[in-house]
Design a protein around this nucleic acid. Structure first.
Lengths: 357, 357
DNA sequence: TTGAAAGCGCTACCAA
DNA sequence: TTGGTAGCGCTTTCAA
């Protein structure tokens, strides 16, 4: 790798400029010269130093991606889609995880920008958008994915979380649930919108929502299973237990199902459960999980498309939101025939004693 | 971001050299000068251009990682471990997926090297190591993970696949299996060593291995579930069906279990099933899956440690292998009391008709 | 303690 | 069609 353009130029008795142009298929190099140069390049296994090129051209062919968790299948999906879409245009992805820590995320943003990225994609865990605002002050286009911020206009690619909440809740109503609970997510755009979709749908159907049927689960994306189980126990402690529950994500839903079964509550007969994300947990779990597919596999690709547009446009482009429509994926965990809401419900206590027989 | 050292130097009436030194805590800058500079830097939100720095220093603070699949939980684990370990030292990860395509992998290697990485980590899908040999000819340290190559010495971090095969098979023997099948993986170091661990263990116990009990599954890491199901049907077609099976990975094992249950074969009573990888599929599947934990969460961290050693060492370091020892994770899919091998076995045909009753 | 000069490997610009 | 010159933003070296 110690070989550089100067060396090749010297070997062939041409100038570095000629080599440079030949390598980039510049039209004003003669066929024979180009051939000579390419031959030598191949012979030496030479590759132009992209660091040097970046310094001159001002673009790095690097796109940054910061996600809260690299292992989470949703973000892995996003990363994969983004990576494969930009690869074809010669970009690489600089990936980093914020571990759901706003402070760490801010540091990583700062560090990434020092690498002079051509674009920065973030599924941000910030509670307020100050750090992101700083990015926008610079010259690196910022694309938010999954999570956005009120009163912070930006490019955004994500799914319609309000619609997700609506779809899930509507589905529970359709299969006959009348006392529907929601295990809600964090105080970010995603959690808030899913909750709103839930509430509006419940209201539209004239159903009641006792305050205590909205359950708050901490750290939903990390300890989901444990939190789901805990949330279920919380639900059972209520005087009138729900007959359906919309869970913020699939992992929580799985925790709910597991705990329900071990407490003698039948899913879906006693409790219909639906998650959100549709993240490959479908097939082998004991009760295949109904979920809302939020198109995680498309988000990366759409973000890539948006980035390429932004980078290709001469004049500054206006911010835009790309909102993907979620889709119901109904499976066994909500598969029951609609029954009348007049069926008297067992209380949590009743259920528990039934389970202990 | 249009701000650079020259600007700061001009503003403060010092030279760029002074600014540069102050930023890197060079000892020979006076306290007051340094303070003045750092103040101004903070005021402007200035960050040194790492591209320019790289060009001069010759190192990029970039580490490349190429894996066959970004979504595969094993590689996601590796990526996460690697990323978090090198982050603290100021490195970023340039990540790319080869999609299990050797040609594409070779291209990506080439492209990555053009970015003048400080190290390159690959879970390679090459069938022969020529492309990797080319990397070693250059100056970028190459670290293989998960998969290695015979007669290609290099730095390597992975788990002991022979031991994994041995552990899994030993466990099946211990729970009473006597006709043990293996759904084998690809013709790479991982597949071959797990197979060898399997074969040696079977032999050591004086058990028979009819040729047809070693089943070959294509594309094990992509269509695992389908292939697992197909492999099970293949097993059922044999005159004497196995009573235990060691599957190359967890996803195949899940496919086997699913198909077995739907064919009326009880797991683990009729067929004990063990996978390999221990990749978070444990809890909610119908029959919790026994597996071999291959320490995927440690591989990235160990690779990082090795890289930092290599980069820190003045003299060229010798190649070394870091081999992590796998561990049995026994769960329900192999949980049966050892029974005598004299129990007559149903044939696949008999089982099938039983299932159709 | 500070800074002038040189140069990392490449590309842009303009002249030949 | 070719190439000399300048310079991207920084660090290194060495002289002041």
């Amino acid at each position: 790798m110690a070989v550089n353009m100067k060396g090749i130029a010297r070997d062939l008795g041409v100038s570095t400029v000629t080599v440079s142009k030949a390598l980039r298929n510049h039209p004003d190099i003669s066929k024979t010269t180009r051939a000579r140069i390419l031959d030598r390049v191949k012979e030496l296994g030479y590759r132009p130093n992209l660091t040097a090129r970046s310094l001159v051209t001002g673009h790095s062919s690097l796109i940054g991606l910061i996600v809260p968790d690299l292992i989470h299948p949703f973000f892995a999906d996003v990363a994969k889609g983004l990576s494969s879409a930009v690869r074809q245009r010669g970009y690489f992805l600089l990936i980093s995880s914020s571990e759901e820590d706003p402070e760490l995320e801010a540091q990583e943003i700062d560090h990434m920008l020092a690498h002079r990225l051509d674009a920065l994609v973030i599924a941000s865990c910030q509670t307020d958008p100050t750090a992101l605002r700083n990015v926008q002050r610079g010259e690196t286009p910022l694309i938010l994915v999954d999570r956005s911020f009120k009163s912070f206009p930006s490019y955004f690619v994500g799914s319609d979380d309000y619609a997700a909440g609506k779809l899930a809740t509507e589905h529970l109503v359709n299969v006959g649930c009348r006392r529907i609970a929601h295990i809600r997510g964090p105080e970010n755009s995603v959690g808030i919108r899913r909750l709103k979709g839930f509430l509006d749908t419940i209201r539209r159907h004239g159903l009641a929502i006792p305050e205590e049927n909205i359950i708050r689960a901490p750290r939903v994306d990390v300890d989901g299973k444990l939190n789901g189980a805990a949330a279920l126990r919380q639900m059972m402690a209520l005087p009138e237990m729900a007959d359906g529950v919309f869970c913020y994500n699939d992992v929580i839903a799985m925790g709910v199902i597991k705990e329900a079964l071990s407490q003698g509550i039948n899913v879906p007969e006693d409790l219909a459960v639906i998650g959100c994300g549709n993240l490959h947990y479908d097939a082998e779990i004991r009760v295949p999980l109904s979920s809302i597919d939020q198109r995680s596999n498309q988000i990366g690709g759409r973000a890539a498309k948006l980035i390429l547009e932004i980078l290709g446009s001469e004049t500054p482009m206006e911010f835009q939101d790309v909102i993907l429509q979620p889709k119901l994926a109904a499976r066994a965990s909500t598969e029951r025939t609609a029954r009348s809401s007049s069926t008297p419900a067992k209380t949590g206590a009743q259920r528990r004693s039934a389970a202990n027989v």
